[in-house]
């Protein structure tokens, strides 16, 4: 083959160009830390990486939902714990009042009145600006005291429930939503079912104490136990849900670590490999340069001077 000058120059420039292009590519990989920087670099890997990123983002949101769920469940748990302790106190007072030997029942009645206020306050707990026992009626006080019933000892409900039976749902994974609230009816008023209305129970006890009706008080002991059981059940319900939520949190944490590892494999520059490739390319470029310099320079002209 006849090798002409433009041929030689073209080969040299093209070798240099190609080498420089590969070096620029490697340099970008090293500088950005990413093996693929735009979809056309590797459409398949980008598509997989984007899918994984989607999952990661969604998981992140579920984790946020879980965190929020835990906060709400904890708030309810704490309130229920307080109520449980108070009811234990009520039981003590009831047992004391049920005994004939105790004659200071009026002071017990006073205690019960304070307890009623106390429990009402807990039932109207506001957390993060929301009444936690009002169902989805979160902006209005769920329980209101009928002052007149207390004042005139009327045979009417002592406390009204203004909330609803609405649920606070939190999505904790793709398929599961979980209720993170118990409404006031469920916790405090199961009189329609096999439970009791706790407010009413305490009010009734207070009245019996005032009347010094020992027999009547004795008859209520069972109801107090029912009330305690009712709160305990609620407490357990919340606990179980909290466990389920925490389990999901762990699951996402493990899953995310795996996804990040896969994404890193797809997207991230293998620095050792890239550096070695870069070094190799640098050598290739140097060789191309020095070979080019040698190919271009000699010409017959260099030797004609001697003729």
């Amino acid at each position: 083959m006849r090798i002409t000058d433009s041929f030689r120059f073209r080969v040299v420039t093209e070798n240099l160009n190609r080498s420089r292009e590969r070096m620029t590519d490697l340099q970008e990989q090293l500088a950005t830390g990413k093996r693929i920087n735009r979809p056309s670099d590797n459409p398949e890997a980008i598509s997989n990486a984007m899918k994984l990123r989607s999952i990661l983002e969604t998981n992140f949101q579920f984790q946020e939902n879980i965190q929020d769920g835990i906060t709400q469940l904890t708030a309810q748990e704490e309130a229920l714990n307080q109520i449980y302790e108070i009811l234990a106190q009520v039981k003590e007072i009831t047992l004391e009042g049920a005994s004939d030997s105790v004659t200071v029942k009026s002071s017990l009645a006073q205690q019960l009145e304070l307890i009623l206020d106390n429990i009402l306050e807990i039932a109207n707990t506001k957390f993060n600006g929301k009444y936690i026992f009002g169902g989805t009626e979160t902006l209005n006080k769920p329980f209101t005291l009928n002052e007149n019933v207390i004042k005139f000892n009327l045979d009417e409900p002592v406390v009204d429930y203004r909330g609803n039976l609405g649920k606070w749902n939190r999505q904790i994974n793709e398929n599961t939503t979980i209720e993170v609230n118990l409404n006031g009816k469920e916790v405090f008023d199961q009189a329609a079912g096999d439970g009791v209305n706790i407010f009413q129970l305490i009010f009734d006890l207070k009245r019996l104490m005032e009347l010094e009706d020992t027999k009547g008080i004795n008859a209520k002991i069972e109801d107090v136990d029912k009330g305690i059981e009712q709160v305990l059940k609620s407490f357990l319900k919340i606990g179980t849900r909290k466990q389920l939520v925490l389990f999901n949190e762990d699951r996402f944490m493990t899953q995310n670590i795996q996804i990040r590892a896969t994404m890193s494999n797809l997207e991230d520059t293998d620095f050792a490999e890239a550096f070695i490739a870069f070094k190799a390319e640098e050598n290739a470029l140097n060789s191309a340069l020095s070979a080019g310099a040698r190919v271009i320079s000699p010409s017959l002209l260099d030797f004609l001077g001697a003729v």
Partner: peptide, 24 residues
């Protein structure tokens, strides 16, 4: 295209060495 350009150059391109020989 580089291949074809090389082929074209190999036929039609100027080789200075060759021209120097011709010159002499």
């Amino acid at each position: 295209i580089t291949q074809f350009q090389n082929i074209r150059d190999s036929t039609s391109g100027v080789s200075l060495d060759e021209e120097f020989v011709n010159l002499i």
